[in-house]
C-alpha cells in the first residue's frame, strides 16, 4: 500500500510539472462541463433546423470514451518518459519488482478513469442512464485507459512519436460513431476496437435497451484480452 501511494504521488508530481500533461488531466472535466452547459444552448439555437436531442446519446457516448482515452494518453506519456529515461529497469530491481510495476501501471490508469467517470458521467446531464449503469459503463470504459496507455507506449519509440500517435488515436473514436449510423449487422466488426463497447453500452442504456448488459459483458471479454496482449508486448519492449 505504501508503495502504491508513493508511486501515485510520484505520478501526480510528474504530471504537475509538465503543462501538456496537466491539460490531459483537466481535459475530461473541461469537456464534461462544456457539454453540460453549451449543448443545451446549441440545441436551442439549432432547434429551427434540426433536433439535436436525437444525437445526445452519441455525444454522451463520446464523453464516455474520451475520459479514459485522455487518462490513457496521460499515463502513456508517463510510460514513454519512464522508458526514455530507463526508469523501468531501475524500478524492477527494487522490492517493487517487475510484476508490481506492471500491475500498478495497468491498474492505476483504470482506477483514475473510474473515479473520473463516476464523478463526471452524471454531470453530463444530457443522457439518461441509471446509477448502476453509470458504474457498469465506468468500469468497462476504465479498461480503455490502460489499453490506450500501453498502445501509445507500445507503438511509439519516443515522446515525439507518441504525440503523433496520440492524435491518430482519434480514429478509434470515429469507428464506433460510424458503426452507430450503420444498419448492417456487420457493424459488430467494430468490436475489435475496444472503444466500441462502452460507447454502445451508453447508447443502449439511454434507450433502455436490454442489449446494454450484452455490450458490458462482451466489452469486458474483448478489453481484457487486448489488455493482456498489450501488457506482454510492453514488457518485452521495455526490458
Amino acid at each position: 500500500m505504501k508503495k502504491i501511494i508513493s508511486l501515485s504521488y510520484n505520478d501526480f508530481r510528474n504530471v504537475l510539472r509538465e503543462p501538456m500533461l496537466i491539460m490531459l488531466l483537466i481535459g475530461p472535466v473541461a469537456m464534461t462541463l462544456a457539454i453540460r452547459y453549451l449543448i443545451p444552448i446549441l440545441t436551442n439555437l439549432t432547434s429551427e433546423y434540426f433536433d439535436l436531442t436525437e444525437y445526445y446519446p452519441l455525444i454522451g457516448g463520446s464523453v464516455v470514451l474520451f475520459i479514459p482515452m485522455l487518462i490513457g494518453m496521460l499515463i502513456g506519456f508517463i510510460l514513454l518518459d519512464e522508458r526514455d529515461d530507463s526508469i523501468f529497469l531501475m524500478l524492477i530491481v527494487t522490492p517493487l519488482g517487475r510484476k508490481g510495476y506492471l500491475i500498478y501501471r495497468t491498474l492505476f490508469p483504470a482506477i483514475l478513469s473510474i473515479i473520473f467517470s463516476v464523478i463526471l458521467l452524471p454531470l453530463i446531464g444530457i443522457v439518461k442512464v441509471s446509477f448502476i449503469e453509470v458504474i457498469a459503463i465506468s468500469l468497462l470504459a476504465s479498461l480503455e485507459a490502460p489499453v490506450t496507455a500501453l498502445l501509445l507506449a507500445g507503438i511509439a519509440n519516443n515522446k515525439v512519436e507518441g504525440l503523433a500517435i496520440s492524435k491518430g488515436l482519434g480514429i478509434f473514436l470515429i469507428i464506433p460513431i460510424i458503426a452507430y449510423f450503420m444498419k448492417s449487422p456487420w457493424k459488430i466488426i467494430g468490436g475489435v476496437i475496444p472503444y466500441y463497447w462502452p460507447f454502445n453500452a451508453i447508447v443502449a442504456g439511454n434507450q433502455g435497451n436490454d442489449s446494454f448488459w450484452l455490450y458490458i459483458i462482451g466489452g469486458f471479454i474483448v478489453e481484457i484480452l487486448i489488455l493482456i496482449w498489450l501488457v506482454n508486448r510492453y514488457e518485452k519492449k521495455a526490458a
Binding site: N14, E18, D81, D85
Partner: peptide, 11 residues
C-alpha cells in the same frame, strides 16, 4: 547502478 543513469528528469 546501471551504466546509463535512470533518473526522473522532472524531479
Amino acid at each position: 547502478s546501471f551504466e546509463l543513469p535512470n533518473l526522473y528528469h522532472k524531479l
